[in-house]
Structures are given as structure tokens and as C-alpha cells.
């Protein structure tokens, strides 16, 4: 059997493109708007979310037979909140400047619907290995969109890539101007909308 036909492969790759959490399922838009002004914050946010999502899926899947049905949402949220606070503490210890820029949005990973959604619909009913893959896949799917939007917004909004000026001064001298709209939230909305459109068009074929 080819690798691309295995179940594990499908679990991992479907959320990256076909049912991408942002452009396919339209989840987790809030943070995607907030942290994508610069590529750097977008990447750190992606890493934090992928970490939380992978771990929460794994842990909840490991406990899925123990968790009492009537308090399962509370249990899921406790696990997710613990992981998020842990990620926040690590960022504060080692990437202080970025953690300041991300401000409350790391804490808000707790309320990101992607994580609770995957825990409820996938991890509770599937074995640990597949849940872990599903978590990483969804995390990478989210990251992929965040990074694309981040690159686009930083380039169009500030003329920079990863903090380095890429549009030469000569352009500005000749009358080129940064697109102010891209720095604001509507810019991210438009960018995400275009990505959804592109994705829907491509995957139809």
C-alpha cells in the first residue's frame, strides 16, 4: 500500500489543505486576524497553537475511556487551559518581546474553537496516535494560513519580510506607499477571504 493511501496519512494531510481549519472550516478566525500583522508573531502563535492542539488531542485521547461523559467539556477545557498557560509561561521566560506583542492572544488559545472542536469531535473517539496526527495536522493547517497571511500583510503593509526591509527606498522615493489597510484587521479579512476562494477553486478540480 502506498503511503499516501494509509489512514494516518489522510488524517494528517486532510486538515492541512482540504478541510483546513481556517479556510475550510472557518474556525479560529479571531486570532488569525489579530496576530498576522507581522510574520514573526504569526509564526510564534502558530507554534504555540500547534503545540497545544497536538498535546491536548493526545492527552484527551489517552483519557477518553476514563473521562465521565457528563463533565467531558470541563475536563477538555482544563487540559487545554493547563497547556495554554504552560505555553504562555515558556514564552514569557524565553521569548519575552514576542510574548508581549502577542499579549492576550496566547491566553485566548484556550477559547480557540479549533482546539475544543478537535477534542470533541476527534480525540474523544479515536486512538492516541491518530489523535496526535490529527492535532498536528490541524495545527499545521492553521499555521499555513497564518503564515501566508502574515507574509502578505507584512509585505504589503510595511514593505518588510521577517522584519527586513525588502521594498527598496527608491520605490518609496518614486511615490510607492505602504498599504495602510493591510495593517488593520480588515486587511486580514480580505486576505483570508481570498485564500478561501483560491482553496475552494483549486480543490474542486
Amino acid at each position: 500500500m502506498k503511503v499516501t493511501k494509509t489512514k494516518a496519512f489522510r488524517i494528517f494531510f486532510t486538515p492541512i489543505w482540504e478541510s483546513n481549519p481556517i479556510s475550510g472550516q472557518i474556525l479560529g478566525i479571531c486570532s488569525a486576524l489579530a496576530v498576522t500583522v507581522q510574520l514573526k508573531t504569526a509564526i510564534v502563535m502558530s507554534l504555540a497553537l500547534t503545540f497545544v492542539l497536538a498535546c491536548s488531542n493526545l492527552l484527551i485521547s489517552l483519557m477518553r475511556k476514563l473521562i465521565p461523559r457528563n463533565i467531558r467539556i470541563i475536563v477538555e477545557l482544563t487540559v487545554i487551559a493547563t497547556l495554554v498557560i504552560f505555553a504562555d509561561q515558556v514564552l514569557k521566560a524565553f521569548l519575552y518581546d514576542i510574548s508581549k506583542q502577542l499579549s492576550i492572544f496566547v491566553g485566548l488559545i484556550i477559547t480557540n474553537c479549533i482546539i475544543l472542536g478537535r477534542a470533541e469531535t476527534y480525540a474523544l473517539g479515536n486512538p492516541p496516535f491518530h489523535s496526535l496526527l490529527d492535532g498536528i495536522g490541524n495545527g499545521l493547517g492553521y499555521s499555513q494560513i497564518l503564515i501566508t497571511v502574515g507574509v502578505l500583510r507584512e509585505f504589503l503593509g510595511a514593505g518588510k519580510f521577517f522584519g527586513f526591509q525588502v521594498i527598496p527606498d527608491a520605490f518609496y522615493a518614486a511615490g510607492y506607499e505602504n498599504m495602510g489597510l493591510m495593517v488593520l484587521a480588515p486587511g486580514a479579512f480580505i486576505a483570508i477571504g481570498l485564500i478561501v476562494w483560491l482553496q475552494k477553486t483549486v480543490s474542486k478540480e
Binding site: L66, P68, V75, T78, Q89, Y96
Partner: peptide, 24 residues
């Protein structure tokens, strides 16, 4: 289950926050 989970999570977080305090 809720009690045990809270204890474990609380313990882990305390550990992380005291361990990383100096860096922060």
C-alpha cells in the same frame, strides 16, 4: 475524576511557573 485532574494540572502549572520564574 475532576478532583484528581485539577490536582495534577494545578501541580504541573505550579512546577512550571516556579521553575521558569528566574528567567521571567
Amino acid at each position: 475524576f475532576a478532583a484528581v485532574l485539577s490536582l495534577v494540572c494545578g501541580g504541573l502549572l505550579t512546577l512550571a511557573s516556579t521553575g521558569l520564574r528566574d528567567y521571567q
